[in-house]
């Protein structure tokens, strides 16, 4: 099972999660749990996808879930710096039109 490295940086109400590796069926749950446990009081979390080489549909499902959670509390989930491969996935699946992506 491929490894997924997650580190977080929090400055007041601004949370940035740095993600590196492959997001697939085996690692996506870990990503969801890690991000969710730091969401208290956070409205605009940023997921740094700079080191993410691949995301499967399981990863997309986690992103959609997080997106819905943030939307429910009038917040906004942002995915920053995705690679072309990953952005293509976002593009194809329509996520690019739904979630705020900073290239």
């Amino acid at each position: 099972m491929s490894e997924l490295k997650i580190s977080k940086k929090q400055e007041q109400d601004k949370l940035t999660v740095f993600i590196a590796g492959r997001i697939d069926t085996g690692t996506s749950a870990k990503l969801g749990d890690e991000v969710r446990e730091s969401l208290g009081g956070i409205t605009d979390p940023v997921l740094d996808f700079g080191e993410v080489s691949y995301t499967s549909s399981s990863g997309l499902r986690i992103l959609m879930s997080l997106h819905k959670t943030m939307a429910a509390k009038s917040g906004k989930l942002t995915i920053s710096k995705p690679t072309q491969t990953v952005y293509d996935v976002f593009d194809v699946t329509g996520f690019a039109g739904m979630i705020n992506i900073e290239r």
């Binding site: 959609m64 819905k68 699946t93 329509g94 996520f95 039109g97 739904m98």
Partner: peptide, 9 residues
């Protein structure tokens, strides 16, 4: 032309 995934929203 792409739409969002089914079940997403």
């Amino acid at each position: 032309k792409h739409g969002f995934v089914v079940g997403g929203m």
